[in-house]
Design a protein around this nucleic acid. Structure first.
Lengths: 156, 156
DNA sequence: GTTTGTGCAAATTTTTTGCATTACA
DNA sequence: TGTAATGCAAAAAATTTGCACAAAC
């Protein structure tokens, strides 16, 4: 990640922790750093393994505790793609996108559609909420698999 | 539920089971019936408890197995509202809707917006899939709680 | 110095699996 | 009758909790 992004997310976390009167521990910044060093989705176990052999090895309990803080600070977003295991993703300056999950091979594809913002505005005004984030998942079957019996995704 | 709906979903399940060459067991129809006897969201444990004291008491394993069949048959839809426990809901002739989850009290609100269908069409054509269903969740903070310090939802 | 946060291991919760038994086809 | 489905209990997977120790403030 770029140095600007790195600085920006560290500042956001610092400000958040001060505002919430939480302590600025080394682990919290190490976790944030690790998350922002990778693209794509991850779960707690993957994050644990990624950090395990690096300078900062943190316990799973600490990861579970701090992912909540990062979620609340808006630095991470949480996904539930149908499996019973939460997936996460960095959120800062990472382009808004949603997901299509293949029912056949379970692969996750991304797409963007600005119209979701309009739906969001309507919903929050109707129900009198301020929407912090959203999760839109489409569950689908591959046309190629249905029509030709094979598809590109299953090969990989 | 109305008798027509009852008949219709039983027919859908019968056809599905025949097509898939799965057996038409009493448990499968009992589970379907129980699900269509209630409105709202439920998890496997609640379904288990609801059936526990009735004429059909089924094991949790059977519920887990058969909810997959009902999902695949399009008779039930699955939600993940942020907790690590899947929630389900009947799907047949139940108006399409999505959910807004309050980050403060965890209550779930429903809303409808036909524009989601347009997004769905764009996404499936771009990625070459046929979308079977979708899940759109908004996570939000209550304006009343923020502005007045109290909100209607927390009282209940 | 106080108190929050961390690490570890144990406990809990949710879901899956193995296997003997039942019952659909 | 052969085989898929069920029930039960045990196992696995994911997350939470309790407590002693470490480290922010």
């Amino acid at each position: 990640m770029s140095q600007e992004t790195k600085d920006a997310v560290n500042k956001i976390l610092t400000d958040y922790l001060e505002k919430q009167q939480h302590r600025k521990t080394a682990e919290r910044f190490a976790i944030l750093n690790e998350i922002y060093s990778h693209d794509g989705h991850f779960d707690i176990e993957q994050l644990y393994l990624m950090m395990k052999n690096k300078k900062y090895r943190v316990s799973r309990a600490t990861l579970y505790n701090n992912i909540e803080i990062l979620l609340d600070a808006g630095l991470v977003i949480k996904h539930q793609f149908g499996k019973n295991m939460a997936q996460f993703e960095k959120a800062y300056k990472y382009k808004q996108h949603d997901h299509l999950i293949c029912n056949d091979c379970e692969k996750v594809f991304e797409f963007c559609d600005p119209r979701i913002q309009q739906i969001q505005r309507s919903a929050q005004d109707m129900l009198n909420f301020d929407i912090i984030n959203h999760s839109l998942n489409f569950f689908a079957k591959c046309r190629d698999l249905k029509e030709k019996g094979v598809c590109e995704h299953l090969k990989k």
